[in-house]
Write a protein that binds this DNA or RNA. Structure first.
Lengths: 155, 155
DNA sequence: TTAAATGCAAAGCTTTTGCAATACT
DNA sequence: AGTATTGCAAAAGCTTTGCATTTAA
């Protein structure tokens, strides 16, 4: 059972801290891993494995996509990374413990970061009414964002 | 712009009615289409394209998977079928206008049908607080069902 | 030194597409 | 008859896996 499977989240405040944490788990801080970690922090928002492998579009060195996936999985098992799924596209990855939840637009794919506390009433309602424990961290709420709703009203 | 794209839902009460509706759209009621429609109604719950193509595991004739996908799309464009996505797996298809929403368990994959009205407070909250128009019909709410929560508490 | 990690290639899974053959109207 | 639809095969998009080679500790 891994950290991620236990729901443990290790809030690493920086790439260096994340790599130290990795080594604390007996894992190596390889170049490929450094790249993944740096990309996640540099992006400032959730990114896909593909974007990481591409060095965030040139800002960082590139890496092999399969290795990126393997390293994201490793980092997630250590509680340093989390990922979630939105719509049909590729999975989105972010540093764990970023203290954010996301709302996704199914039309324009926009991601809106929100305070997890602001979803507490929803979680509470679902728990009480259905016994459903919805975290929204792995499968965020998907809908149409206000911009898209307005656009559709005009049309 | 198709019926489905307009958000129009044509509640066909039976396979025969659905096929009539199809013909009303100038489309043909082919054998392959009949199979898809009958499978959707016979299943009584959302099913995957693969399950339809397999004739619901022997209960019905089989069909080509690519044709099933094409026919599901056609039916959806006529407002006769809807589909939604749960977790990582394949898309789930059901007759449109079944008057149900679903809650999904991310652990055991169970689908729980609920009265759409029972999610109104959640929709209302999301709309007011975030301007998010969440229908939950294409991307249902995902969480851990009560059974799985209990199991985890014991462990 | 040596086990962990990488890079490449190939495969898996769901869904889509091209196209000649078929079947509905 | 004429066109919508089918079935098959191939490909696309995301992710995982096998394996020989490299590299961190």
């Amino acid at each position: 059972m891994t950290a991620a499977h236990l729901g443990v989240t290790v809030s690493a405040p920086s790439p260096a801290a994340a790599l130290s944490a990795l080594q604390g788990h007996g894992l190596r801080a390889s170049a490929a891993r450094r790249l993944v970690v740096e990309a996640l922090y540099a992006a400032g928002q959730p990114v896909t494995a593909e974007e990481i492998a591409a060095g965030l579009g040139g800002r960082l060195p590139t890496s092999d996509l399969a290795s990126v996936y393997r390293n994201l999985e490793t980092l997630e098992e250590c509680g340093l990374v989390r990922h979630f799924h939105v719509g049909h596209g590729a999975g989105m990855y972010a540093p764990a413990g970023d203290g954010r939840d996301y709302l996704a637009c199914e039309r324009c794919s926009a991601l809106r970061a929100v305070d997890p506390e602001s979803l507490a009433p929803v979680r509470e309602y679902l728990r009480r009414r259905f016994g459903l424990d919805a975290g929204f961290s792995h499968f965020p709420i998907v809908g149409r964002c206000s911009d898209c709703v307005q656009q559709e009203e005009r049309a």
